[in-house]
Structures are given as structure tokens and as C-alpha cells.
Design a protein around this nucleic acid. Structure first.
Lengths: 193, 193
DNA sequence: CCCATATTTTTTACGAGTAAAACACCTGCT
DNA sequence: AGCAGGTGTTTTACTCGTAAAAAATATGGG
């Protein structure tokens, strides 16, 4: 989780609320073991959400470690690649603020990354003529080439990492995650109390 | 996801490989938008895995922010809680090395956390009598009470956060994630080349 | 016109994690 | 016994992200 997370986390739920049974027999992953321990210690607790949240966290941690491999080969961290990718996929210049929103990171982090990427000749900046507070950032040719060169390797690697899931399973997983994500994005700000 | 990630990341796939259609109509989440942008710029690319990996990363990021709330109220970070939780759910003492494995973090990180948690009176340590390199860490009464006090709030909060998914959906999602996680945990070490 | 306030970006101070080296200690071989 | 090499833990040096303050500029009301 990024970095910071773990299956040692607070998640492990009872199969009680498990409705439809999916394909494949129940593999015994780390989270299942953690859940069993919690249930043994606190039999009364509804550990349901752990099954989902714990696994999302752990999958994210493992996937990121894996995903980083092709990026690292090109000397990029994932946040850096995210920034370059945002510029590449939108196809136009973005301000630091827009980049921060686009990559879900703080403005300060974007400032630092831009400085580094600029020194490496991957991005350029120009000031806005109307409003002299704002800057406009764009990819250099080298930056664009780097993104275009890394992206296929990145996607191929991700495909390999996901190869355990067949087509329909992957589609179902994507759909369920989309459902969850849609709700999280819509409602989380309000819940954050 | 620990930490460092983002939907600005390299994920966004074509619905091409999407087999079985899940319940609910396709919500338009952030990842879907990112995927559309990538496909517009690179029409030939198989963006399939993005749909899954991008969403897992983004969900992990959002969930963690949400999850942190009940923990923060008690002055705990998630890694700290993971460490205390490992001690609580196993029910016995653990060595720093075991704690590192159990919480999927580095030994150095565990050393630092133990120091802080020790200063707060939540854990205690004693040296092994046979092998004087190893230490044994256990929860103090205060530590155990803290975990037991926070856990219900934590789980309740997680339930609320997941309330967008009904029972069967949650079960299916847990099953699919378990499938993926099982394979990742088994195979990732080998793939890490 | 000038001031108060808001906005965009950068700077500062600091906390947290990591990798690699350092320590301290064990174990087995000779 | 003595030492080579291995294991468990901590320390060191460094990187990276963040929150909060600062800097620079815009905007609207009096």
C-alpha cells in the first residue's frame, strides 16, 4: 500500500455473509488465516468486512511491488510515472494543481516530482501569461517517448501478474471493484467525519 | 498501498475482455475515465489489466484513508495497529522478526514501532534466556485493552464503508480477491525477476 | 485606488520507511 | 577451544511524503 499496510491489518470476516460462491475452490490465503485468528479470539465480532478490505489492501501491496519492476528498469517510481502518464493521456498541458488532482497527491509532492522530472529533461514548464501564479507543464519529446516506451511493458507485466484469473473472472472482478469504487468516490467525502 | 499509488496510474482496460457482466449498471468511476483517455491516445494497447489493477489500487487508497479514522481517534497509525493486532490475535508473544513477517514490514520498521509503542506502555519486551539475540514482545494490559476497544469501532466503520455492496456482491468480491491473492502470494516471488 | 481575502505554488520542518551496514550472538566444523 | 559463517536485531544515512507556513499574485468591495 502503497505502501504502508498489511494483511496483519484489521480484516478477516466470517463466511457468514458470503452469499454467492465464486468459481474455484476457496484458496487459503494469508487473509483467511488472519481472520481465523481474530474469530478465535473474539468470537462475537462481525469480521465480515475484513474479507474484502484486508484482501484489497494486501493485493494492492503485492501488485505494486510487482508493477514497480518494469518502471524501475527505466528509473521511474510509480508516482513519477503517474505524473507523466497524466500528461500523456490528457494530451495537453496541465498546471501543477491539476496534476495534483489528477494523480491524487499533494501539491507539495507534485512540486518536488516536477523538479526532478524537469532536471531529467522529461517535462518542461512555462508560466501563464494572464495569471502569473500558475504554471503550465508539458511533456518533452523525451518524456513522451519514455512513457510510450514503458507503457507496453507495463501492461504486459500486469497481464502476466493477473494471469491467474481467466477472462470472465477478471471481468467480474473489474465490475465489482468498479461498483465499490464508484460508491467510495461518491460518498467517502461525506463519511470522512 | 500502501501508500504511494494512484488512479492516474497505468491502469485502464478495454471492456473487450470483460466476460460475465456483474450486477448493477456500469458506474462511471475515475478509473474508467482514465482508461478511456489511454485508449484514445493508444488505440492498439491492451488496457485490460488496468480495469482490475487500477481499481484495486484506488480502492485501497480510499479505503485506507477511511479506515484510518477510527484508529486516528485513538492515536494509532495503521501499521502500529497491525503490529498490536498481530500480538492480540496470535495470543502469544512474538519476536521482532516474527512481527515483521506477520505485518509484512521490514525489521527496521518494526524496531521503530516497538520503541514507540513501548514508550506508550502498550507493549513490553523481554530477552530470550537461551538465545540472547532474540527478544519476545507482548501486549501490556493497556495494549490489549486498546486493541479490544478499537477493533469493534474499526469493524463497524468498515461495514459502513462497504455498505454500498449487498451481501452476495460482497461475498463474490471476497471470493474473487481471495482467488487473486492466493495466486499472487504463491507465484509472485518467482515472477519478481 | 487600496485593502482584505482567496488562490496557486513553493518552501520549511519533520515524521516514517527503507536498504545496507553494524552489532551481538549462536552453531557447527576442525 | 577457536574460528567461519549464519541469524536476529538495531543503527545509520537517506529518500520521500506531508502539513503548515510562506510567497506571489489575483479579485472584489469600499
Amino acid at each position: 500500500m502503497t505502501a504502508t499496510e498489511g494483511p496483519g491489518a484489521a480484516d478477516g470476516g466470517a463466511p457468514a455473509t458470503t452469499g454467492g460462491d465464486a468459481p474455484g475452490r476457496s484458496r487459503d490465503d494469508t487473509v483467511a488465516a488472519v481472520v481465523r485468528q481474530w474469530r478465535a479470539v473474539h468470537p462475537g465480532l462481525d469480521t465480515g468486512p475484513m474479507e474484502v478490505i484486508g484482501r484489497i489492501n494486501r493485493c494492492a501491496a503485492l501488485l505494486q511491488q510487482a508493477e514497480d519492476a518494469p518502471l524501475r528498469r527505466e528509473g521511474l517510481t510509480r508516482p513519477e510515472f503517474d505524473l507523466l502518464g497524466a500528461l500523456r493521456r490528457t494530451g495537453h498541458e496541465l498546471t501543477p494543481g491539476e496534476l495534483a488532482r489528477e494523480t491524487f497527491s499533494s501539491g507539495a509532492a507534485v512540486t518536488k516530482r516536477l523538479k526532478q522530472l524537469g532536471e531529467r529533461g522529461l517535462v518542461e514548464r512555462r508560466g501563464d501569461t494572464r495569471d502569473r501564479r500558475v504554471a503550465h507543464v508539458r511533456l518533452t519529446d523525451a518524456g513522451r517517448d519514455l512513457v510510450d516506451g514503458v507503457l507496453p511493458a507495463q501492461l504486459a507485466y500486469e497481464t502476466a501478474v493477473l494471469s491467474g484469473l481467466d477472462g470472465p473472472e477478471r471481468g467480474e472482478l473489474a465490475a465489482l471493484l468498479s461498483e465499490l469504487l464508484g460508491r467510495l468516490e461518491g460518498r467517502l467525502g461525506a463519511l470522512r467525519a
